[in-house]
Design a protein around this nucleic acid. Structure first.
Length: 508
DNA sequence: GTAGGGGTAATT
DNA sequence: AATTACCCCTAC
């Protein structure tokens, strides 16, 4: 693919641009998923602009801003700063400064003032950028010296800083594009599928393999790795985007997109290994084992009836498969993890304390193990599950006034990658004919939501405590701000955690 | 968003 | 049993 972004950017943006533009000013409030997509697109735009800018061999000072912007976007997602970006930043700063040296001394002085004594100095003082480092410091001495030392200025003039800058920028652009490529392919694929897929009325996407690159953060699979899980579409989400509006696209447009999609898919397949077959096999095995146990023991069946948070998996291999598929989708190829997760579901089920269910209701309601009613509840709960990724601890409750039964919960594995979490809304993934759907009673829904998962306790390390103390010194008790400033240190911590910890540390 | 009171469960 | 971490809730 000669120009990857040129082909894919418009396609990928078509369904997301509106959201992107609308939420730009409010990105701290947008959902994690929208946020990661927005970041990806922003970065793509900026990288693309740099690429175009240097295409004719010019190195504009604005590139410094572009690089800072990219770093800012990356930082928000906890992504590391590429060395190539640091080199490019330094090279551009040097070139832009020395380019003015050829014009006039005042011009050169002005450049130093503007680039080094203002822009870079602010970055250094605020320690807000990793783009400033020893290299820049070394060059600062050089360019400052050249202000008053003609010999030094002559020496600098002999250096071909333009070529250096262009080379560094090209390396960075290439690296940035490579790092974004997998995620971008997913995004393009999702957008292209949305465009290509005909509107299907009541068939709410069942069985359609859909990619949602916006899930990355929510799932806790760090966006930084750009390993985007393939996700099974759920009916709820399927209702949201009105794909019918694309139905009027002309055949040529559709063909064009399909061509792009074909190429994208080929690239994608080279990057992603489909974990589904393996996981399905494991899920099938687990489900059949459990089904066997269930048939042998009526007591277990009753237990399954009580554990409405873990419905049906004991005797319904279809649902176990569906869950496994969701897990497989979320893990983005980590088969082994997926196996563990499938098994973990059975553990969770056993740990759930039985809710106080009205016995009379038990009689009237079929056992949950065979009652599909509970599955939507599970899906709903899945939507609300606290993800193991950073700052994902807000689970809506039925009422603000209602206390959540936090502690009496079953624990969830909070691996940082969050892959143990089910994706939201996998409820429509059952492939076997679904049993008759019976609407859940409000009472049942209430009970399901009552049991909110609690994160696994993760003890604070000394390093974390030190960083927290330092952060409080620097920012005060602005926990959200601290969290944003130290995304790498406070992995899997919430602002509330920071507050509580600080409260503990200070003995308040 | 934050402070602070307080509850629960896990860990030491 | 004490401590720690997580969580809920309310007020501001």
């Amino acid at each position: 693919m000669d120009d990857f972004f040129l082909v894919h950017l418009p396609v990928a943006c078509s369904s997301l641009l509106r959201k992107f533009l609308l939420k730009e000013e409010d990105e701290m409030n947008m959902s994690k998923s929208d946020f990661s997509t927005t970041c990806l697109l922003k970065k793509a735009f900026i990288v693309r602009s740099i690429q175009e800018g240097i295409a004719n061999g010019s190195v504009a000072e604005e590139i410094l801003d572009s690089l800072l912007l990219i770093e800012q976007v990356d930082r928000k997602q906890g992504l590391p700063v590429f060395d190539s970006m640091k080199s490019a930043f330094c090279a551009v700063a040097v070139h832009c400064t020395l380019a003015s040296l050829t014009r006039s001394w005042p011009c050169y002085y002005d450049s130093i003032l503007r680039i080094w004594r203002t822009r870079i100095r602010i970055l250094e003082d605020s320690a807000s950028s990793e783009l400033v480092g020893p290299d820049l410091d070394k060059w600062r001495k050089e360019v400052e010296a050249a202000l008053w030392d003609s010999e030094a200025s002559q020496r600098l003039l002999r250096i071909n800083t333009r070529d250096d800058a262009l080379r560094c920028l090209r390396v960075f652009v290439e690296e940035a594009r490579s790092s974004m490529k997998p995620a971008f392919l997913q995004l393009t694929l999702a957008a292209a599928q949305a465009i290509c897929r005909p509107h299907r009325g009541t068939d709410k996407g069942k069985g359609i393999l859909r990619v949602n690159p916006q899930r990355r953060c929510k799932l806790g699979v760090p966006h930084r790795h750009y390993k985007v899980p393939v996700e099974i579409a759920d009916s709820k989400e399927e209702q949201q985007p009105s794909y019918s509006k694309f139905a009027s696209l002309s055949t040529s447009e559709v063909n064009k997109v399909q061509e792009a999609l074909k190429t994208s898919t080929a690239d994608l397949l080279a990057v992603v290994t489909d974990p589904l077959p393996k996981v399905l096999e494991v899920a099938e095995k687990v489900a059949s084992e459990r089904a066997g146990k269930t048939l042998r023991s009526e007591a277990i069946l009753e237990d399954g009836n009580k554990n409405k948070d873990v419905p049906a998996t004991s005797v319904n291999p279809t649902m176990a498969s569906a869950q496994a598929e969701r897990v497989a989708s979320d893990t983005g190829g980590e088969n082994l993890r997926a196996e563990a997760i499938v098994e973990d579901h059975s553990k969770k089920g056993k740990r759930v304390p039985p809710p106080s269910v009205n016995p009379t209701k038990d009689k009237s309601d079929p056992p949950s193990s065979v009652n599909p009613t509970t599955e939507p509840a599970l899906a709903k709960e899945g939507n609300h599950e606290r993800q193991a990724s950073i700052h994902q601890n807000e689970a809506p409750r039925p009422s603000l006034m209602e206390r959540n039964g936090t502690a009496r919960t079953y624990e969830w594995e909070d691996s940082i990658d969050g892959s143990s979490q089910e994706s939201s809304g996998g409820s429509t993934r059952c492939r076997l004919p679904s049993p008759k759907i019976k609407p859940a009673s409000p009472l049942k829904e209430y009970e399901n939501k009552k049991w909110v998962r609690r994160r696994k306790i993760h003890r604070w390390s000394l390093h974390e405590e030190e960083v927290l103390a330092e952060a409080v010194r620097k920012y005060g008790s602005h926990w959200a701000q601290i969290l944003r400033a130290y995304p790498l240190e406070f992995v899997n911590r919430t602002a509330g955690d920071l507050k509580d910890k600080w409260r503990n540390m200070t003995g308040k």
